[in-house]
Design a protein around this nucleic acid. Structure first.
Lengths: 263, 263
DNA sequence: AAATGATGTTTCATTATATGAAATGAAACA
DNA sequence: TGTTTCATTTCATATAATGAAACATCATTT
């Protein structure tokens, strides 16, 4: 990121290697689908059993890791879930907007999601489930791609120009055949989004699913969130129903107005 | 430090003090509602700025911590949310049961929650929102009290006897005037729960809110989860409607049957 | 019933490396 | 301009992390 990297690939700036190893252990355990043996973790991280053991003890003491009582093996602890939820609640939008989002869900019948971009990540903060049995919508804590989601396009169209430039210049991964993968197509789509005030991404993330998103601004007119309805293309056509657009854009505007009062 | 433990209640067994400090820093940042200055964190943890700084650099590199670009202050990073979500998906019940839970929501109109106990914690794994505008239900990642929630009573009634004994003998905190706070009353209630196969907690966690919970077992007949409907007492009376009981207990049995097929 | 091979756990000498005080930037403020 | 308030870097010191190998448990196998 802010790395000159000085030719020799020797990038050992500040930081603590002990902590680094321990964090890698946590991430390793989260990735595993079943509890891992100590030796297995040590091997995966190219460290010794004793070292990993001591770190696991401390991690366990804090609840980041848990040990299966029967087998003695280690797995990720629920503290991560608890902290994740505590963190989620810090975002103004989710609490300020819940009632409006419920109304939007009831009016459209579709699932509603809220997203925010933090640095280089676009993350789902809130999900109000729809009424359909089959669930497409992404859950809080999920990361979305900027170029391949309706939420992402809102952030590229109305967010910081630096981010938009960086994303447009970078590689654009295709999730489906419909995903936008060229810079030109993306910029053209973003121009359209700016003009209309809403974005869609039919079949671009999952075939058969569409999302209709709109921006939420705070009192300084800076983008602080995006809201969207998510559903089968059958219910949200590539060019959505005018009623759907009115509902989503109207709800976003209402939430924005609510954020203006604060502060 | 370097203390041969014993004598002074402080037992410093295995573990890593460096890591311990860093984890405390993460927890501190999650607790704060706004970004914290380096010196503030160092002071709170009785450490030096330099030490904390180096740890924050490493934590940031892993996404556990983020630095506000404008002010340079530190706050918790979204990695915690992402890892929390990844962890949640590891539980069989949430994926195996979603369709049934949606149906339960649609039949009862109330919010549906799923819980599991891990060691000494009772945690919400899944939430299907109801159709009412006002939301009572707890979100995934929230911890519940064993003695003061319908989910908790299911775990005390059908879970391990050791846990039940430990909880019943410990202090029972009152959340509302209706919370059960004596061992006798709790054990009597649990006997009733075992007999009926379902549990309620009217007004016991929040006044005006009731929950109706039932147990989910796996193929070995061990308790692996609990499901419940949550709503205003107006909709879920202290003695729920027979239809509601049938729906919840029936859904739990259906999910249990689903888990039997696997493995 | 003894032996084997999985585990996790502890010990201990060795030195790598985390540490704190203070110096240095950098930026906002008055 | 000077002053305050931040984060960041430097550097000598010894704290505290480290790995190899021994130990302890528990199943499973012979």
């Amino acid at each position: 990121m802010t790395e000159p990297d000085s030719a020799s690939g020797k990038s050992a700036p500040a930081g603590t290697s002990t902590l680094d190893l321990a964090l890698r252990a946590v991430e390793y355990l989260v990735q595993q689908s079943r509890p891992a043996a100590l030796a297995q973790i040590a091997e995966a991280l190219s460290s010794s059993k004793a070292t990993i053991y001591r770190h696991l003890v401390t991690l366990q003491r804090h609840g980041f890791v848990r040990q299966e009582p029967e087998t003695g093996r280690y797995e990720a602890g629920i503290k991560l879930m608890v902290l994740g939820e505590a963190l989620r609640q810090r975002f103004d939008i989710v609490s300020a907007a819940r009632a409006d989002l419920m109304t939007l869900r009831d009016h459209t019948g579709q699932a509603v999601t809220v997203c925010a971009a933090i640095d280089t990540e676009l993350i789902v903060l809130e999900l109000i489930q729809g009424r359909t049995l089959i669930e497409f919508a992404t859950r809080p804590g999920t990361r979305l791609a900027f170029h391949a989601s309706a939420h992402g396009k809102i952030w590229l169209a109305f967010g910081s120009k630096e981010r938009t430039a960086a994303i447009a210049d970078g590689p654009l991964q295709a999730w489906t055949p419909a995903t936008i993968v060229t810079k030109e197509a993306l910029l053209a789509d973003l121009a359209l989004v700016r003009e209309r005030g809403w974005a869609t991404a039919p079949d671009e993330v999952i075939t058969g699913v569409n999302t209709l998103a709109a921006p939420v601004f705070d009192h300084r007119q800076t983008l602080v969130g995006s809201i969207a309805i998510v559903g089968a293309t059958q219910f949200i056509p590539p060019t959505p129903d005018p009623d759907q657009i009115r509902e989503v854009v109207g709800t976003a505007a209402r939430i924005s107005r609510g954020l203006t009062w604060q502060d």
